[in-house]
Structure formats: C-alpha cells, structure tokens
C-alpha cells in the first residue's frame, strides 16, 4: 500500500517526537452556572516518541485533555509543555485527528490534505509533501475526489494524511477509529503502528477500547470516572506487530477492565 517514493520522502525528513509534560492540570466546564469538574490534578510525563493510550469510561474527560494538549482550550489550572515550551495555543507541531474525519466537503482530497501547509503559507514550495502524504495512506488515486465520494475508512485515512503532512512532533488521536467497521479498524491499527514506527512522532491516543490500546501503545494510562484522575499507568513491553491473542496482553486487558470496574464481565 505504501509506495517506495513515499517511503524515501519520509526517511529524508525524519520528524522526531517531542516530549510532553502535563503538570497538575485541572479543568472544569460551566454548565448553566454550575461548575462541572472534568479533570482533576492530572500529571503525565510523556517521553519523545512514546505511544501513549488514554483509556477511560466514556465522557470522563479524556477528549478534554486532548483539546488542552492541542492548545484549543486553556486549563483552569496547571501547565502543559511541549519540549519545555508552554502550550498556550494551537500549533501545527501538535495535530489532532478527530473521531469524525471532519474533512472540508468543498475541498477535494488533495486540497484537504494541503490545508495545513496552505494555512501556514508554505504550500507553494511544499506541494510534494501533499503528494507524499497521500501516497503514505494509499489514496493517491483519489486526489481529485470529493469527501462525499469516500467511504468512512478512506475519509479517516485522508484525515490522517492531513495531519501527517505537517510532520507533527505530537500526533493527537481522539478515537479516530471509533466509528469504523471492525475490519477497517484492524487494518488501520496496523497502519498507525507502522507510521508511528517509521516517523517517530510522539502519539497520544484516546480510546475506550482496551484491546486497541494494548495492541497499539507502549503505555496505557487508565482514567477514573469524571472528574478524570490518573488511576493507573501501565507499561506495555511487547514487540510489534502484536497479536491480539497474546496471553500477556490478555492478562493486561483483564487488569485494565478490572480498573474500569468491568471485571464482572470476565
């Protein structure tokens, strides 16, 4: 699926990952005058190039944490740092892939992928990076298609290419595979791992699927119910590609489901 030219292109620009420090971050929303706490004193330190999965019950505040890391919102208290520099607003070195592909329907696939370079005003000299990113996700032949002509999996691949074209130091994935069918999902999990291994960016993945977290990440952080606190920080020391039937992973999965209060289902 990955063309040789695209590989060469990527190897020529190795984008190393950045370190991410989340220090005592708390956050809350105002809902009808009442304060709803969503994050409570969260501290996580991520090494450059790590693949960290954030796992927790739905609605616990994981996605809020991602928005803070992206710089889309500011925390009520605490600080977030990317390579020692404080995060105050969005920057293309930290790119988010959302649960919905949110492709711009009025742009072709190619123009969607070019969005970041165009916004930064460097598209003219960097057009080849758009082509390379499309090759990378195997959609070069769909460059002139409009989003409504794509399947869900293809649209999410375009969203991934749109993120990767910026050579992010931190890739933020907010349940990007959540709405895909299970076959596409498994394929794209493998693609994600190989992209991450090749490019070396730091990856933050929000998911509520324990198996997905264990297949992809080398660290799984389990959150409590809202307001989210870090409940467990689990290192997953297994080589890639991982197998879903691996007894070591199955054991970890049982532990994690126990932490989430689902041990009765096992």
């Amino acid at each position: 699926m990955v063309a040789a030219t695209a590989l060469a292109e990527i190897d020529a620009h190795p984008a190393a990952g950045a370190a991410l420090d989340i220090e005592q971050v708390s956050h809350a929303f105002d809902i009808d005058g009442a304060e709803l706490p969503v994050l409570s004193d969260v501290s996580i330190s991520v090494e450059p190039g790590e693949f960290v999965a954030l796992l927790g019950p739905s609605g616990c505040g994981k996605s809020t944490l991602l928005r803070l890391v992206a710089g889309l919102d500011k925390p009520r208290s605490g600080t977030l740092r990317e390579d020692e520099a404080r995060i105050t607003r969005p920057h293309p070195s930290r790119v988010v892939v959302f649960q919905d592909p949110t492709l711009f329907p009025w742009r072709t696939v190619w123009d969607n992928v070019a969005l970041g370079l165009e916004a930064q005003g460097i598209l003219k000299s960097q057009r080849h990076r758009v082509d390379a990113a499309l090759d990378l996700v195997g959609l070069a032949s769909f460059r002139n298609a409009y989003p409504h002509q794509l399947s869900g999996g293809m649209a999410q691949r375009v969203a991934l290419a749109r993120a990767l074209v910026n050579d992010p130091k931190i890739l933020i994935l907010d349940e990007p595979l959540g709405k895909l069918d299970s076959l596409t999902r498994i394929t794209m999990q493998a693609e994600l791992v190989s992209l991450w291994q090749r490019k070396g960016f730091t990856t933050l993945l929000v998911t509520h699927d324990a198996e997905e977290a264990l297949v992809l990440a080398n660290r799984v952080i389990v959150f409590s119910d809202r307001p989210a606190r870090v409940k467990a920080d689990i290192r997953v020391d297994r080589p890639y590609p991982r197998h879903r039937g691996d007894p070591y992973l199955a054991d970890l999965r049982r532990q994690i489901l126990g932490l989430l209060g689902l041990d009765a289902t096992w």
Binding site: P90, H91, R94, V95, F98, T102, L115, A119, R162
Partner: peptide, 13 residues
Amino acid sequence: SNAYYDVARTLGA
C-alpha cells in the same frame, strides 16, 4: 460547525 474551525486552528490557521 466548530469542528471545522478546530481542525483549521490545529493546522496553524
């Protein structure tokens, strides 16, 4: 949709 603005902002718009 705000999602479009979020996407564009994270990409440096």
